[in-house]
Amino acid sequence: MINRTTTAALAAAVAAAALMSSGANAQTANADKERCYGISMAGKNDCAATGNNSCAGQSKADYDAKAWKYVAKGSCATMEVTLKDGKKRMGTLAPM
């Protein structure tokens, strides 16, 4: 049995929930992250665009330009890695 109070409470909760959802998006563990390519160590990537590995943790080379890792939003382009040949490179938001 659903009485009037419960109906009102339900309607209020649903309205509040819709409001919350329209404001900030869901707080997922990876919603505030962005995909950053070319910075992950071998086996530490979250996924890859194409190429030598299927997905998480499967990249075979350090700093594989096609493998990406979730990083905090806005921080990707500031991630500098030092490659084997001593050159430095920044992360990118698209596969290199």
Partner: peptide, 13 residues
């Protein structure tokens, strides 16, 4: 338990 937060989380995900 807060129904609004619960629904927002479930739908949002």
């Amino acid at each position: 338990f807060d129904l609004a937060t619960a629904l927002s989380t479930l739908f949002g995900a």
